[in-house]
Each structure stands twice: as structure tokens, then as C-alpha cells.
Design a protein around this nucleic acid. Structure first.
Lengths: 343, 343
DNA sequence: TTAATTATTTTACGCGCGTAAAGTTATATC
DNA sequence: GATATAACTTTACGCGCGTAAAATAATTAA
């Protein structure tokens, strides 16, 4: 490394004895220049370690390599995990992912979308807040920027939706639980912000009806994203008041279940499927920590890998089609039941 | 909202009847223009909802409002939580945080630093990978971009370091455990990537020595960031082989402890401080989930809020000082012992 | 009202790069 | 070695904005 200061592409072109447009062409596609030219550039690259300014590049480009990834709450390991996989796929495909966290607040979500307009991304992967999202703002954004929704569906917004089939989740857990023991009651937040939660409740009721059982919902109070604490408090209350109508509890999601399990442990309620257990607990999501709960959590797992792959594949298709798709597709992935020790 | 298309500041200045530089000045500081002018701009703003392109703004600015936040592994809730707080503080201060995840890979970390150069951030908050980091690359980056290190210290790199005082963490847990029962053995990964882990081991040995007890280290194998699984496998092995030299185990961090607790539950080893318990377990970090483990985890807590505040405050000081500080400060925060049920 | 003090406009250039068109050189084909 | 075909260079403009200097207009002080 020589310490001549290379400030921009002009400088770099000069020291490699080429014109700037040629160098620019190289960075756009290294194979588009003559091999000897390419070798010269790459030799200079080794010496000076120059990299073009990605934002200046995007300023006057028809199609950038940027992609925006927006999630509602990154401190939720579910999103952290799915984002991790998506980011890798994007980098492998030569795209530059930019990650944004709405932090559960509609105001942030809108600000993020504004920032994303400036980024001029080739496409955006958006997991919206859900009920709290400003649909008008998102609709306007989707008109300007090719967007794939994931996790939470907002009707007719974005070019496509990729998510999980909540009915598949619930039908598998309910089927399993009813087949192997008492029909479950359903443990959930009273007013969930996430549309998936509503779909799960409806699926539970429908499934119980179909199987000829009486659905029992145990709604607990609380709002925000501290689901474990909400689940714990709600479960303590429910256990004390005897609100569980069955010895089997199906939680809307794993984070609530984690709180519930912690409450059970505290109260000395043994959870599991053995005879000496007082309660069976199952749930949905296969949260990264659900294998480490005590007991380990029986749950319906997202196919993280398939969802991530499809999200990214849809994004690529969208980009290749010039930002618009013929029709809005909704791709839903079924769950895989993971039997562990809690039910 | 009128649907005249406002594409840039030129357009916006035109419809508000002002010149572009005046509008530019307004966005730089709204109070720097005459009140009547300000009112005109803000009225137009309501109608057309224009926002300047943040990246074009930064292109020719001496000092941008961008800050970069880099963490080694975002799927670790510890980082997710600290990032959440830091991001909020930045937004409140009118800065635009950009979040990057090294994903445990040195190559990513370097790529991120390159992207960050393009972003021209006013400052960067960097939690490096640690031992695996390319120190030369980071050193070179820190020369160009004002950087505050946090979480993991790399000697002499960056303008400042903000982190936790590992000795305070370990001394409090060791002191508590020895005072209330058997002296603990120390459960950790054999070759931890994070420098904090090494400091904790040394602090454990020193503390045990000082108190006149024999230190016992239980090193487990494994690499990567799946600490819970590593802890679980290591603990299963240790339990079967009787490798715990004491009925008290102090884990290097909560994620290992979560794995250990899950192994104990599996093996029917009751954990807690009551007489009917076979093992006491304590740890360090106060991981967001440690209050929901079974039993809840006794741990030395980071002062998340204080660390985040100091990280951001140091960043602000650094920015105000023009990107350099007189001397490199290392600010370490003590732990707060949180007594829960596991020990 | 006039002078002094702001605020604003005009002008002009820069940031670091993309990109298109026209002209020039190097490589491949015969 | 002449010609066709790439590859390359030059030139010139654009992206959306910052910013500095000089000229003009509006406000305030006198």
C-alpha cells in the first residue's frame, strides 16, 4: 500500500493510467473491460485499496444495488434471526443491504421510509408494524419504491407478500394437542398489534369447531413488545384465578410461552407431557430460544430458511422485472411441528 | 397534498417562491431564516411533503448528521437491546443512525467499514468482533473516521472506549457466591472470541486467589455465536462426567448459562439456592431473557442505560470536538448484582 | 428619511460518480 | 496489411444538494 491519497475515481483512474469512465465501467462490471485493462485496474486496486463511494454511485444510477430491510422490532430474536439470513443472501447476490428498525413505533416506520427514498434502493423488504402502520404512508411509498412485504401482510400493499401460513401453524398444533390429550385453550394478548395473531386466533376457533371442541380463549392484557413479561404476568394471573379451562395451553407465540413457562416454574406447576405434569404448553414460531426453555418448547416452526429464500427470490424477481410484478402474489409457507418436551 | 411532483429542492424552492439556497438554509437550521420565510416553507412543506435527499445532502457537507452503529452479532439479544437504546438516543439528538451487523465474520466487518466511509458519518460507534477483527483495517478506518469503540476494547484503537468493568462483574458474583455457599467453578468456552471473556476468566482467578479458594475452570469446546447450544452441550458433558468441582457454577455469560440451565433441567438437576437444589448457577450480563429462565438467573447486570448514555455522550463530545479527542479515554461501568432464583 | 444591519437572491462552483455520444486506438478477421 | 469490430478516451452533461461570495432587498436603528 502506497500512501498517495486516492480521494476519488479520478485520482484512481489517473494512477492506473486509464480514464475515469473506463474505471467506472470496470466497477460496474469487471468483465466488460479488456483483460489487460482489468489486470491493470486490479493491480492498482491492490496497491491503493480504493473503493468507489457507494452513495455517489447511486446518485445518478437508474438501478442501484441497495436494498432496504425494515423490521418492526429488532430486539425480537425472531426478526433478528430472519434478518440475519436475508442479509447474507443479499450480500451473496452482490447487493448492499441496509437495515432499519421501526422499534415498534409508527413514527419511526414513516421516517425510515423517507430515508429509504433517499437511498434509491432497487427494492425494499418491509415487515410492517401491522395494525399500527400508517397505511397511507406505506401505500405512497410502495408506489415509488418496489417493495416486498413480509411477516405481516397489509392488504394490497407492496408488489408481493411472503409470510407464514398461520392456519397451517395452528392446525398442526391443535391437531397434535387434541390427538394426544385434552383440547387446548388459547393464550394470547387481548389486542395484538400483529395481524398474524388475529389469524391465529381465528384459525384456533375454526379448528376447534371443526374437531367438535369448545374453543376457550384466555386473553391477557398488555401492550408493546415485551411479550415475555406480558405472558408471565398474564400467566401468573391466570394460574391464580384458574383461568385455564384445560390442562393444555396453546400460546399464540413463543415469546408469550416463554413468559408462561417462567410463571409455571415460579408457581411450581410442572409442565410437560409426562403423567406427573400438570400442564402441557405448546406454541408457534420456533423462536431461537424455544429449544432452551425448561422444558423445551413444543412449537410450530417457521421455515426460516424457506421464507428467507423466498423473500429474497421475490425481491430479485421484482428487481429484474423493473420494479413491478404483473400481479400481487401472496406466498405462504406452512409450519413444521417440532415436538419437544413441553407438550 | 397536491400532486405536483416535487423531485428536488429546486422544485420545492420554486413552488414556495424562494431560492434554493434559502430553502437549503432552512433545512440546515429552520431558525436561521426569517419567520415569514420559515412560515412559507412550512406551509409548502405541509402541502407537498418534500424531504431533501439525505445522501445528496451529505455529499458536499463538511459534517453530516449520519452515525454508523456496528455490532458483531445482532441476533444476540444483548446487542439488539443496546442498539435499540443507542438508536433512540441518536434519533432524539437529530442524528440518523445506520445500523450494521458484522454477523460474526471479519470479512463483513471490513466491508461494513468500507461502506461507512462512503456514508461520511460524523461518527461511528463500533463494537468490534474482538480477537478476530482485522486490527490493521480498523486502525486505518479510525484514522479517517471518528470512532468510539464499545463493548469490546481493542487496544489504542478509536478515540475512546466505553464498556463494562469485567472485574466489577466477576468480583460481585464471586463474592456473593462464596459468601453464601460453596466457591464457584467457572464455566466458559475454551477459546472465546470476545476479549471480555478473557478478562472475566482472569478476574475470576484473581478473585478466588484473593479469597483463598482454589479456582476451577470448566472449559467447554465450541466456536461461533451459538452460545446457548454450546453451553448446553458443554453442560451435558460436564454433568455426565462430573466435571463441576463445586455445587456452584459461575458462567462467563448469560447465554452460556441459558444453555446450562436447559441441560440441568433435561438431566433433572434442580438449580437454585434452596436446600433441595443440587446446583447453584450464576452468570454475567443480565441478558434480556435471563429473568425468564427456569429458575430465573442470578446475574451481574450491565447498566444498559448508563452504557448507552455514555456511548452516545462520548460520540457527541467527539463530534463537537471536530472528530478528535485530546486523549483516548476508557470508560468502564460497574455491574449491579441481580439476585434471582438460580443462586 | 437615511444609514446600518440583517436576510435573501444570484451566481458559480464543488461533491463523486453515472452515462451517453463522438472520436480514437487496439484487437481480431480475412 | 487493409478492414471490421471491439475497447477505450474524450467530452460533456446530469444527479441533488452544500456552500461561499457578491449583489440586492428588506428590516431595524437612528
Amino acid at each position: 500500500m502506497t500512501n498517495t491519497k486516492i480521494k476519488n475515481m479520478e485520482d484512481f483512474a489517473a494512477i492506473s493510467g486509464l480514464s475515469r469512465p473506463t474505471v467506472s465501467k470496470y466497477f460496474h462490471d469487471p468483465s466488460s473491460v479488456r483483460p489487460t485493462t482489468r489486470a491493470r485496474i486490479e493491480a492498482a486496486l491492490e496497491q491503493y485499496n480504493y473503493r468507489p463511494n457507494i452513495f455517489a454511485m447511486n446518485q445518478n444510477r437508474k438501478l442501484t444495488k441497495n436494498v432496504g430491510i425494515v423490521v418492526p422490532y429488532l430486539a425480537d430474536p425472531f426478526f433478528a434471526e430472519i434478518v440475519r439470513v436475508i442479509e447474507r443472501r443479499c450480500v451473496e447476490a452482490g447487493l448492499s443491504p441496509f437495515l432499519f428498525n421501526s422499534q415498534g413505533e409508527p413514527g419511526y416506520e414513516i421516517d425510515i421510509l423517507d430515508t429509504l427514498r433517499s437511498l434509491k434502493p432497487a427494492g425494499v423488504l418491509l415487515a410492517p408494524l401491522g395494525r399500527q402502520s400508517d397505511k397511507r404512508a406505506i401505500e405512497s411509498f410502495c408506489k415509488d419504491v418496489p417493495t416486498v412485504l413480509f411477516d405481516s401482510n397489509l392488504e394490497d400493499l407492496g408488489e408481493a407478500f411472503v409470510g407464514s401460513d398461520n392456519r397451517s401453524f395452528v392446525s398442526q398444533t391443535v391437531e397434535y394437542l387434541t390427538r394426544t390429550g385434552e383440547p387446548p385453550c388459547f393464550f394470547e394478548m387481548k389486542t395484538p398489534a400483529n395481524p398474524n395473531a388475529n389469524k391465529r386466533r381465528l384459525a384456533y376457533i375454526e379448528m376447534m369447531d371443526r374437531l367438535g371442541f369448545e374453543p376457550h380463549i384466555v386473553p391477557i392484557k398488555g401492550s408493546g413488545w415485551a411479550f415475555e413479561e406480558i405472558g408471565r404476568q398474564g400467566a401468573l394471573k391466570a394460574l391464580i384465578e384458574g383461568a385455564f379451562a384445560s390442562n393444555t395451553v396453546l400460546c399464540s407465540n413463543d415469546r408469550l410461552a416463554i413468559g408462561l413457562l417462567s410463571a409455571c416454574y415460579k408457581m411450581g406447576v410442572k409442565v410437560g407431557r409426562n403423567d406427573d405434569c400438570a400442564l402441557r404448553v405448546a406454541s408457534h414460531d420456533d423462536h431461537p430460544f424455544s429449544r432452551f426453555t425448561c422444558p423445551s418448547l413444543t412449537t410450530a416452526a417457521h421455515d426460516y430458511s424457506a421464507v428467507s429464500d423466498e423473500v429474497v427470490a421475490t425481491l430479485f424477481k421484482l428487481i429484474e422485472s423493473g420494479g413491478r410484478l404483473d400481479s400481487r402474489t401472496e406466498q405462504l409457507f406452512p409450519a413444521r411441528l417440532i415436538m419437544r418436551d413441553s407438550a
